[in-house]
């Protein structure tokens, strides 16, 4: 599969929110922040299956994470969704355009299939 362009929308989820309270080194939070969701039609078009590791690259960084099919009609084609966390932050740049806020949603990314042993599991600290 060649590189494909998507727009990444990081956001809050219930699991990520509960995970913060359970602890950032506990399972629920780790699982919540490492899944990347894609529209099922996009997955089919690109020949990607549930759990397939993908390399997501932005202008500022890259991560390799397992893919998840988005629920029903939740995500339109061309968008990716993931929960806020250490991995989504790695794809953000430091520039805030005079606002104090880095562009944290609507990030241009490319994705390509990756190998299972490339999946990012290392946490920052």
């Amino acid at each position: 599969m060649s590189e494909e362009t998507f727009i990444l929308i990081p956001g809050r989820t219930s699991d990520q929110g509960c995970g913060i309270s359970e602890g950032k080194y506990a399972r629920r939070y780790s699982d919540a922040i490492t899944a990347v969701q894609m529209n099922a039609q996009d997955m089919e078009r690109l020949g990607l299956s549930e759990g397939q590791p993908v390399r997501i690259r932005s202008e500022h960084g890259s991560v390799v994470l397992p893919l998840q099919a988005a629920r029903a009609d939740e995500l339109p084609q061309g968008l990716l969704f993931m929960a806020y966390g250490e991995y989504s932050s790695r794809l953000m740049g430091g520039e805030t355009h005079g606002s104090g806020m880095p562009t944290s949603k609507g990030i241009d990314v490319t994705i390509e299939a990756a190998e299972a042993d490339e999946v990012d599991t290392g946490r920052i600290a």
Partner: peptide, 10 residues
């Protein structure tokens, strides 16, 4: 911020 900030900030 070590989890939520951009790479250069972290």
């Amino acid at each position: 911020p070590m989890a939520n900030f951009s790479e250069p900030a972290r």
